[in-house]
């Protein structure tokens, strides 16, 4: 008599390709056991194929299949929803010695994952230009911005996004080069958006996320701009963010 808990562990071990005594506990071995083991691999593989289509194109079938079968072994699914199964793949790639000399692989994987995150991230209310136009001169310095929950800010060491865009459109990707770039990803309505940002915009967004106010943004952006024009630059960013629907709420005191 085998305890149910033990039987389930043995069965799962079989699905995961381990050598187990499962045949002692089933009355009809074939092809049923193989059907379950194949289905396990296939379902998880399909989930990763769906989450990382361009990574597959970048690596080619042989390398991609090797990567995902290793991932399936090292990161079995811990979430009831397949939606989250692939979440550790970018980190897993970074741990692989084989990929450490090719930073684009992890960056492109992380890019694809982050686009997925924006796709079903929480929505929110959106601030409109009227909120800003009503502000008095005294209110501007303490003005704070709450940004939309789908916003993500990322920096790459390579031209991962250019390569991703080409692969996505089934075109020949450009040569892989080292190139420091900053990007934002967010969802506008139901559509996932991304664009590159200059260093000063990146910092302004990060500061806003941390709760810094308009005066503080101006102060920090003096790294890139003369004091007499820095406020104009921050207002220009603010307008851009309103157009992009990046601002959830304008908080004035």
């Amino acid at each position: 008599m085998v305890e149910l808990a033990d039987l389930q562990k043995i069965f799962l071990g079989h699905l995961q390709g381990q050598s187990t005594p499962i045949t002692n506990y089933v009355t009809k071995e074939q092809p049923g056991l193989a059907i379950y083991a194949n289905a396990y691999q296939q379902r998880l593989t399909e989930a990763l194929d769906g989450d990382y289509p361009c990574l597959g194109l970048l690596l080619g079938d042989a390398q991609f299949n090797q990567l995902i079968s290793d991932y399936i072994v090292h990161h079995p699914s811990s979430d009831p929803s397949l939606r989250w199964f692939g979440q550790y793949l970018p980190a897993f790639i970074r741990e692989q010695v084989h990929y450490q000399s090719m930073p684009i692989v992890a960056e492109l994987a992380e890019w694809e994952w982050r686009l997925r995150l924006a796709f079903d991230a929480a929505g929110s209310e959106i601030a409109v230009i009227d909120h800003v136009q009503q502000l008095t001169a005294e209110q501007w310095p303490t003005l704070q911005l709450e940004l939309v929950p789908s916003l993500q800010i990322v920096s790459w060491q390579t031209n991962a996004v250019a390569v991703w865009q080409a692969l996505e459109q089934q075109q020949t990707p450009p040569a892989i080069v080292e190139e420091r770039t900053d990007w934002i990803i967010w969802r506008k309505g139901l559509v996932t958006n991304f664009r590159s940002v200059h260093k000063d915009e990146r910092v302004a967004l990060e500061l806003s996320l941390q709760g810094h106010n308009f005066a503080s943004l101006c102060e920090q952006l003096c790294q890139w701009h003369e004091p007499d024009v820095v406020a104009t630059r921050v207002v220009q960013l603010l307008q851009q963010w309103l157009n992009d629907e990046l601002i959830r709420k304008v908080i004035s005191h």
Partner: peptide
Amino acid sequence: SVGGINSHDLL
């Protein structure tokens, strides 16, 4: 699922 691992199959 068992041991915190999801098979995503109906076993």
